[in-house]
Design a protein around this nucleic acid. Structure first.
Length: 212
DNA sequence: AGGGGGATCTCCT
DNA sequence: GGAGATCCCCCTA
């Protein structure tokens, strides 16, 4: 295992390459109430202004300013009046693409995470994008943090690459449903439960187009 | 200035 | 399986 942060170059690539590569990586957050670490099991890729499902679709607005900045920073947004979700920005400045962290397994600081998620089972502590943020203590003020520079919010390579990665349509988006840019670790119990999966084996270089 | 919709979660039936 | 919670953002007038 290594605790060294992923290099910024890791994120300076096309988002559909970064998203599957983030599976198995470990996101860690130090706060006064404790340190929590999550092994990522599920991600989604959102491309820039040309992706109708992306928050950057309507161009550069105050909310998505971080998306248009340099790679390796956290884009945190607030939704449904009560939840936060976290993305990691990809590509050169101006690209405005990002990977949503949809689910993970708490691998350190489970007591701290459980205190933030009062009625959650151990399995559900970070099993969903808003649950993951709550378990890690990620809120609005963490928008824009650099995860590559060894700060309080950082991502490291993790123990090992997942054995098998599947991909399918993104969750909860009302446009570009056919783009299979959701990625998850096959048979991992910490993948989010909210939509039936339409499993499809991901082949090298196959990201971007779907088949019924 | 108003309004519609949202990359969700939890509890209830 | 379904509705309610509950704020913010952005578009339109």
């Amino acid at each position: 295992m290594t605790d060294a942060p992923l290099p910024r170059a890791f994120f300076d690539r096309p988002v559909e390459l970064v998203a599957p590569d983030l599976l198995g990586r470990v996101l860690t957050h130090d706060t006064p109430s404790g340190t929590v670490a999550v092994r990522v099991t599920e991600t989604e890729a959102y491309a820039g202004p040309l992706d109708p499902a992306s928050h950057a679709y309507r161009g550069r607005t105050p909310r998505v300013e971080v998306m248009f900045g340099p790679p390796g920073h956290a884009y945190v947004y607030f939704t449904y009046g009560m939840h936060f979700c976290v993305n990691l920005v990809c590509g050169p400045p101006g690209t405005a693409s990002a990977v949503l962290l949809r689910a993970g397994e708490v691998v350190a600081g489970a007591e701290t995470a459980a205190a933030r998620r009062l009625r959650s089972s151990a399995r559900d502590l970070a099993r969903g994008p808003a649950r993951l943020c709550q378990a890690l203590g990620i809120v609005r003020e963490h928008n824009g943090l650099d995860v590559c520079s060894g700060g309080p919010l950082r991502i490291s390579s993790g123990d090992s690459a997942p054995a098998s990665v599947l991909s399918g349509p993104r969750v909860g988006v009302s446009s570009a449903k056919d783009v299979p840019w959701r990625y998850w670790i096959e048979d991992d119990p910490f993948v989010s439960p909210y939509r039936a999966h339409v499993p499809r084996r991901r082949r090298p270089g196959a990201a971007g187009k779907s088949v019924p």
